[in-house]
């Protein structure tokens, strides 16, 4: 499987994500700069977590207008799998590959802890190794994770079953406790939790491994 990770100024989870991909997807990912106009041929493109452009203007807003994004949007339309983690999720909403927006946490506090997440769907590229409605422990670390979308569009994404995962206990004000979201074609996933930080029990949880197992299983079919 060919995996590319896009790095922006202020991205800080690119190396952790590359480490998780190398160890759990058995492939060495390419890390490319957001200034590249073309993304190498990839089965999976990951936008990792961090604070691209210092969250200036709105988190993800400036990153979403970088040269690499035109090719990313094209590749998404052609069915390439795209995963945005944390800041990556914010960037995917800013570039309109995912609906809605991530506002400041309603507590106005940065939340950094391992929490319970319920996996809603287990029939996609990203989650096939989970049981349906399985509850897992995955760390979150964000200031802007409060998912918001207008009422009608919220009903649409619920009706289309685009919700990938929900917080078991409300933490940041997210509508319907949404922690992760698919696009309509289910090839783009944005999530606030960090699965790449949950791949070794020695650092608290290895529940994140199942994300990588899912992708690996899918690739081997």
């Amino acid at each position: 499987m060919d995996v590319t990770i896009i790095s922006f100024p202020g991205t800080n989870c690119d190396v952790d994500t590359a480490n998780a991909v190398s160890r759990k997807l058995n492939t060495i990912p390419k890390i490319i700069s957001c200034k590249e106009k073309e993304i190498p041929k990839s089965d999976l493109i990951i936008i990792p977590g961090g604070f691209s452009y210092g969250d200036y203007l709105r988190s993800g807003a400036i990153a979403a207008r970088e040269p690499v994004m035109l090719d990313l949007v094209n590749k998404a339309k052609n069915g390439v799998y795209i995963l945005g983690i944390c800041n990556g999720f914010q960037i995917l909403t800013e570039v309109n590959l995912l609906p809605g927006v991530l506002l400041k946490n309603n507590s106005l506090k940065f939340i950094s802890k391992t929490i319970k997440i319920k996996i809603i769907r287990n029939d996609t590229f990203f989650t096939s190794s989970f049981a349906k409605n399985e509850t897992v422990s995955i760390p979150v670390a964000h200031h802007d994770g409060n998912f918001f979308i207008e009422k009608k569009a919220l009903m649409e994404i619920e009706d289309n079953q685009q919700i990938a995962m929900r917080y078991v206990d409300p933490i940041n004000g997210s509508l319907n406790d949404i922690a992760g979201l698919y696009n309509q074609k289910f090839n783009v996933l944005g999530l606030m939790p960090h699965p790449e930080r949950a791949i070794d029990i020695r650092t608290g949880s290895d529940d994140g491994i199942k994300f990588f197992e899912s992708m690996l299983n899918f690739a081997n079919i």
Partner: peptide, 9 residues
């Protein structure tokens, strides 16, 4: 419209 405001919110 392109950058300064996110008209969703």
């Amino acid at each position: 419209k392109t950058l300064l405001a996110n008209t969703v919110i």
